[in-house]
Design a protein around this nucleic acid. Structure first.
Length: 424
RNA sequence: CGGGAUGUAGCGUAGUCCGGUCAUCGCGCCUGGUUUGGGACCAGGAGGUCGCAAGUUCGAAUCUUGCCAUCCCGACCA
């Protein structure tokens, strides 16, 4: 609550940081610009991954994994690409440490210098297209529709938790096609997938657009993106999909023989979303009480808080809580029973609000007598009393309503924003 | 990478200008008891290289220099 976090009006940036850290999503680490994603934050990311991964697979893609390291020479094969990334690359120059002869600790062993330096991938086009050369000979090998879940490193000067970190998690799709038309179609299709994901799962209305020439991805012919409006009136680029033309095929000499027997370079796309989506999620829905999560991405959708005085009451309300949990789970709702006896109910109420749990159920002795519970929704902070037997259907409905309300609310906010187009 | 600010216990802070029992207070943490429908109360207790490193000085949280980190504004970027 305001006891813990700044308000948006006071200091928007501080409010954002407070939510990330106080809701236990992530923290800065000992490594400059790199964050520790904590279990609760990672659970949200896993939810996003699951939903996206399914959408990728439903559109014909498969997952694979390519190396973290890229030979330096690869990066320079596509001129615009290296131009774009050169300034923010971490470079591996040695492969061994040794004890410092003069004192404590270890030093880099000068004898263990790599013949060719390795770049920690800022993105994987080069290593992937170098590999595709071996995989693609014929039009029969196309299209090649591959996605990778990975971490990448971009040595950013100014970092912010989730929004811009030196290392971040993402997925990168890399597809190869026989024709330009097909590749453009893929680029547009994946942008649609991202837009659909943002609106349906994250409850974030997005605007689809195309980047201008100098905003384009380094090495792309055309860059499409989805942008979302944050509560401070700034737009956040939430996902990009690139039509790469034949740039990388030419750089890595990836040709295929068509039905007509003629050779041609392969057409390419790449597309990605990152842990920055977490930042978008946080900034779009949260309020001065803390995080607000859309039910479809909440690690648990419902929390049950037992209220009791004696040990005997504790047993009774917990038993009731357990059976409610079971009934809700049967209805496909994820539930956590907060049966910690080390914290008071009021403390738990505030904590779960701070962490954005969509629905809270409070159950106490009074409820046991009446066959009711008190439920509270996080988005509006409204409470009502429900009969226990109605819970599965009513809560399922309520969760849908919250999901919808968050979207509508975000859309309204966007429309009310003055046209101050600033970007993160 | 340019401009500005900050760094004292897990968190938030007092003290820094005017060097000298100054390491303050709150939250949190631990123990015991009473509590439990919106962040409980009482009593006791633990916890600190004052960001790091040099320097000035009889003496440095306090002054000087360098470094590191974080935050804000900008440029750049997913």
């Amino acid at each position: 609550m305001s006891k813990d976090i700044s308000t948006r009006a006071e200091n928007y940036s501080k409010w954002y940081n407070d939510i990330v850290t106080k809701a236990n999503l992530a923290d800065n680490s000992a490594v400059r610009g790199c964050m520790v994603i904590k279990p609760y934050g990672y659970a949200i990311w896993e939810k996003m991954q699951q939903a996206l991964d399914k959408m990728f697979k439903d559109t014909g893609h498969v997952n694979a994994y390519f190396p973290l390291f890229i030979p330096k020479s690869f990066l320079s094969k596509e001129a615009a690409h290296v131009e774009g990334f050169a300034k923010e690359c971490a470079v591996v120059t040695h492969y061994r440490l040794k004890n410092d002869e003069n004192g404590k600790g270890v030093i880099v062993d000068p004898d263990a210098k790599l013949e060719e330096e390795l770049i920690v991938r800022p993105t994987s086009e080069t290593i992937i297209w170098n590999t595709y050369r071996e995989w693609i000979q014929s039009y029969r090998d196309l299209p090649l529709l591959i996605n990778q879940w990975a971490n990448v490193v971009r040595w950013e000067m100014r970092t912010r938790l989730f929004l811009r970190t030196a290392e971040f998690l993402w997925q990168e799709g890399h597809t190869a096609h026989a024709t330009a038309e097909e590749a453009v179609e893929e680029t547009e299709k994946m942008l649609e997938v991202y837009a659909h994901f943002a609106e349906t799962f994250m409850a974030i209305p997005v605007i689809k657009g195309r980047k201008t020439a100098n905003e384009r991805f380094a090495g792309a012919v055309d860059t499409y993106c989805i942008e979302a409006m944050m509560q401070d009136g700034k737009a956040l680029q939430a996902g990009t999909s690139h039509f790469l033309g034949q740039n990388f095929a030419k750089a890595f000499d990836v040709k295929f023989t068509g039905k007509d027997g003629k050779q041609d370079f392969v057409w390419a796309t790449s597309w990605g979303v990152s842990t920055r989506l977490m930042g978008a999620l946080i900034m779009t829905h949260s309020d001065d009480q803390g995080l607000v999560l859309p039910p479809k991405l909440a690690p648990f959708q419902v929390v049950i808080v037992p209220i009791y005085r004696s040990d005997e009451e504790f047993q009774k309300v917990c038993d009731a809580g357990k059976s409610i949990k079971q009934e809700l789970e049967k209805a496909g709702i994820s539930v956590k029973l907060d049966d910690r006896d080390t914290h008071k109910p009021g403390f738990k109420f505030n904590e779960h609000e701070l962490r954005g749990v969509p629905v809270r159920i409070a159950i106490g002795p009074r409820d046991l007598e009446n066959g009711t519970v008190e439920i509270a929704r996080r988005d509006t902070l409204e409470k009502e009393i429900l009969h226990i037997q109605d819970l599965p259907t009513k809560i399922a409905h309520l969760l849908e309503q919250i999901q919808q309300n968050l979207y509508t609310r975000a859309l309204t906010k966007r429309e009310e924003q003055p046209l101050a187009f600033k970007q993160w």
